[in-house]
Nucleic acid binder design. Structure first.
Lengths: 192, 192
DNA sequence: CCTGTTTCTAAGCAACTGATTAGATATCAG
DNA sequence: CTGATATCTAATCAGTTGCTTAGAAACAGG
């Protein structure tokens, strides 16, 4: 019975996520969203209830996005120091060409909204916990493999590298690759 | 000749800076500004031309603010590792009580606006250069004092600690003090 | 006191904000 | 095909956005 949706909710959510990623929450209007998602406001609201809920769904979607496109290697069971090192240097190399250093959606959100919205703050927090958990596993694997000292404090080091990644995301907005490489190299040297 | 201004431009700018600091640029309306600055829109525009220019002035004002209230110790000629250490642990201890972890205005701005506004990006960049210059001096003093190894790469280390500070600003929004302390302790240990 | 200039108040501007709605359109069970 | 239901289009809602302006009020020089 009844009519079918003419769009794929998953696909339009991916589009929405990218728009929020580029512009931030406040600077993204529902008009812009309907244009970029390719559906009109009625459909947006009927599928996602409100702009804020769409944004929260976008953050969750972002997590899946980076799992598959950014952290796919680090998430492998056998990922250790080599993979972490590769990831960090790659992140430092991110081109910040005119207008396009969007950084990390969640870091941007932390800066923009965490102090004013608890629901979003919880979402952001969950994301960072996920990243840290990933780092814990990677570091533990590195210990098991003998790549780093057996008495390495994985708890402390995972907190450290999470902080480094957050710093990298901010720094990459204005800083050149050389300086970012210095940052990363010092961060890595202390554990080797 | 003519009437006198009934407000101090310096004082109202300080108020404006704090409002932007708490809410961010987009989420701060001119109505809110006139309420918090204690003057009406006519006066805001006659003194600061536009919301954006007022914001840029606020960033400059923020720099003076932190020079006098946050980095005053680190900016002293003789500041070395002890002062850097003290500052970082203090930053890690920043209470993020309900609604009030505003972090650093410039880091927040980097996340919110750097990708969309070049003029603001330049302002943000200038601020980070200033912080790094401060770190360079502190680290060089630490070398001269013999607090850290004489062959310390001050360039790399200043880039590193700038990144650490940026990460700390983001992390402090959602992360508890214990984890922030771990982050800071690892960052400091590698140089000692 | 006047006169000229500036600052102030408060109303108003068009454009945009997130969100809703009425009516047209499509779809499927029967 | 018919009828019920869901989805679409497009207009519209009240409220807010950054910014401007006309006229009242305050001040200084003469």
């Amino acid at each position: 019975m009844s009519r079918n949706k003419s769009y794929d909710e998953n696909a339009v959510l991916e589009r929405a996520m990218i728009v929020f990623w580029i512009n931030g929450y406040e600077a993204t209007s529902v008009r812009l969203l309907e244009k970029e998602m390719g559906i009109n406001q009625f459909s947006i609201y009927s599928s996602f209830t409100s702009k804020k809920k769409l944004f929260i769904e976008s953050i969750r979607r972002y997590r899946e996005h980076v799992k598959q496109n950014v952290y796919q290697t680090l998430l492998r069971e056998d990922a250790g120091m080599k993979e972490l090192e590769q990831y960090l240097y790659k992140a430092a190399r991110k081109k910040k060409k005119p207008g396009l250093s969007r950084g990390c959606l969640v870091v941007n959100t932390a800066a923009e909204l965490v102090s004013s919205d608890e629901e979003i703050a919880a979402e952001v927090n969950g994301y960072f916990i996920f990243i840290r958990e990933m780092l814990r596993k990677v570091l533990q694997t590195a210990v098991d493999k003998g790549e780093i000292a057996p008495d390495t404090d994985v708890e402390k080091q995972s907190a450290f590298f999470l902080g480094v990644m957050q710093g990298l995301s901010v720094a990459s907005k204005t800083t050149d690759t050389g300086q970012l490489n210095d940052f990363v190299s010092v961060a890595l040297k202390q554990i080797k």
